[in-house]
Computed example of a mutant assay.
Amino acid sequence: MKHIRMILINGPKRVGKTTNANLVADMIGRSLPDGCRAHRINMADRLKTLTNSIYNVRTPDGQIAPPDYLEAIKDQPLEIFGGASFRQALIYVSEVVIKPRHGKTVFGKWFLDTVNQVCKPGDVVITADTGFASEIVPIINQVGGDNALLVRIHGMDASFDGDSRSYVHWKHVLTFKDDTNAPFRIGDASVRPDVLARGGFREIDVTNELGFPERSAQAVLDYAARANWLVRPTEVDLELAKGPTL
């Protein structure tokens, strides 16, 4: 997987992470060598599906709800969660049910399982929901620091209030050590020494301006271009790439 590149988007709720990720995926997809693709894969999809299964959240046809079924009302108190919101239910399942059993790196490991199934060398993966240093550790151990870009999004008066996540920096990732005594822990507990020795860790901060999400996406694209990830980094039609604002 060392030839797969990752764009890990990090920021508080309602800052525009999904919009940014969709734009970046579309724009980068136009600028990759022939045969390579940009993939939108979210780290929390499996957690959302598990949470829907635990609480028996179903679609009108009786199927367990897909990951983003409740996304539009994520912060609304719901009877099915005992008056809690979907976001609060996700935090509970993540921090109380899953991580104590499988270790804090588990969601990064599950994310890599999905990446392994759908990606090939030369592809770029964009994820909109990076929130913990622990999630990034197994990713970096697979792809290396020079093949990953950590993007922190700011602006729009968004904050991490009521969220278990926060802004992540490489220093958090590189010093993370999982001391959870989890019998079924998956993945590496810390960044491997050979990965540390190679270095190349990339991170940027961008600001989402209300009504102009393509500007922060362009900043990510420009950085990827300077890192020699792209073939024709600036030959994109921003209006076509922009699409509907989410």
Rank of each mutant, 00 (worst) to 15 (best):
121 P>D: 14
114 T>G: 00
114 T>R: 14
101 R>G: 00
131 G>Q: 07
132 F>C: 00
101 R>I: 13
106 V>K: 03
116 N>I: 01
125 V>L: 04
114 T>C: 00
120 K>Q: 15
134 S>K: 06
115 V>F: 03
137 V>E: 09
112 L>W: 12
115 V>E: 03
108 G>F: 08
116 N>F: 12
130 T>H: 03
136 I>W: 10
135 E>C: 02
122 G>I: 10
124 V>I: 15
121 P>G: 09
127 T>V: 10
123 D>P: 07
111 F>V: 04
111 F>I: 06
117 Q>M: 09
113 D>C: 05
108 G>I: 09
132 F>E: 05
137 V>G: 04
132 F>L: 06
124 V>F: 12
116 N>E: 13
121 P>M: 11
103 G>F: 07
133 A>T: 10
122 G>N: 13
136 I>E: 02
107 F>R: 01
107 F>C: 02
116 N>A: 11
101 R>L: 13
124 V>C: 05
122 G>A: 11
128 A>M: 01
126 I>T: 03
139 I>N: 01
117 Q>V: 10
110 W>E: 13
117 Q>D: 12
101 R>Q: 12
108 G>V: 09
137 V>N: 05
126 I>R: 01
124 V>R: 01
132 F>P: 01
125 V>Y: 06
133 A>E: 13
125 V>R: 00
131 G>D: 05
102 H>Q: 10
121 P>I: 10
119 C>D: 08
132 F>D: 02
101 R>E: 13
110 W>D: 02
133 A>Q: 08
137 V>Y: 04
121 P>V: 08
116 N>H: 15
123 D>R: 07
102 H>M: 15
139 I>A: 04
118 V>I: 15
111 F>K: 03
113 D>S: 13
112 L>D: 02
102 H>E: 06
114 T>S: 05
107 F>W: 15
102 H>Y: 15
117 Q>N: 10
127 T>W: 04
102 H>R: 09
137 V>F: 13
119 C>Q: 05
120 K>C: 08
104 K>T: 04
109 K>G: 01
109 K>V: 15
121 P>N: 09
139 I>D: 03
107 F>V: 02
134 S>M: 09
129 D>R: 08
